[in-house]
Simulated assay, not measured.
Amino acid sequence: MTTEADLSIRLTRAAFNRALAEADLAAIGPLLAPDAVLVTGTDSALLSGRKAQLLAWKREFAAPERVIYTRTPDRVVASSIEPIAFEHGTWQGAVGDRIIASGDYTAKWRQTGAAWLIEAELYLTLG
């Protein structure tokens, strides 16, 4: 059974994926909590805060061979006692049709008003 949280998070993730594909920083910002944390998959670099993530994405978008990252949720687990949820899934980075990296990820979300915001993401590179 799909819960309201599950559907909202999947729709927000789809919007995030579109923003990455379109290099749309303005669309990414509102999807991240102000203190959002991201731990990258290969070197475990820590990006702490919305501003740090937006700067990193800005650099990624300017790269001569731009990688398009896509996250695909497998499941979303919402807490029954707090407005928080975990998203588990797979990710990939591609240049054109060539996948250059992929793996698993987990994201923690928090509902703020009607919106679900990403608080933390942790990536594992497997390929």
Rank of each mutant, 00 (worst) to 15 (best):
A52D: 00
P30F: 06
A45Q: 12
L122Q: 12
T40E: 01
T106M: 12
A33E: 05
V67F: 02
I100R: 13
R71P: 01
A56P: 08
R98L: 14
E22L: 11
R66W: 07
F61W: 05
A14P: 09
A62V: 03
G49W: 01
V37W: 00
G93I: 05
R75D: 12
E121Q: 08
G103Q: 14
L55M: 08
E60P: 01
A5S: 12
R110W: 02
W109Q: 08
T40W: 01
A36L: 03
A52W: 13
I81H: 10
P83N: 07
W57D: 01
R110L: 15
L46N: 04
S102M: 10
Y105W: 00
R13D: 11
I9P: 00
R71H: 02
R59P: 05
S44K: 15
D104N: 09
Y123R: 10
L31D: 07
L20D: 12
L11E: 05
T40N: 04
D6F: 15
A56L: 10
I9A: 02
L46G: 04
I68D: 06
I81M: 08
A101H: 02
L126R: 15
A63L: 10
I81R: 13
A36I: 08
I28T: 02
D97R: 10
G29H: 01
E60V: 08
R50A: 10
A78M: 02
E4G: 09
T42K: 10
S48C: 11
Y123L: 15
S102V: 04
A36V: 13
G96E: 04
L46I: 06
T106F: 01
L31P: 15
S79G: 06
W116F: 09
L20P: 09
A115W: 06
A27G: 09
R13Y: 01
A23K: 15
V76N: 03
A63M: 13
S48N: 15
A21T: 05
G41V: 03
E60L: 12
A15C: 07
G113I: 13
G127T: 05
D74N: 04
E121V: 10
E87H: 14
R59M: 07
R110T: 13
S79V: 09
R66D: 06
G41T: 03
E119R: 15
W109F: 14
D43C: 09
D6E: 12
A36W: 02
T70M: 08
A21V: 00
E65W: 03
P30D: 02
D35R: 15
M1D: 00
P64A: 02
T125L: 06
S44F: 09
R71D: 06
V39K: 12
A63F: 06
G41A: 03
G93L: 05
A101W: 00
W57C: 05
S102T: 08
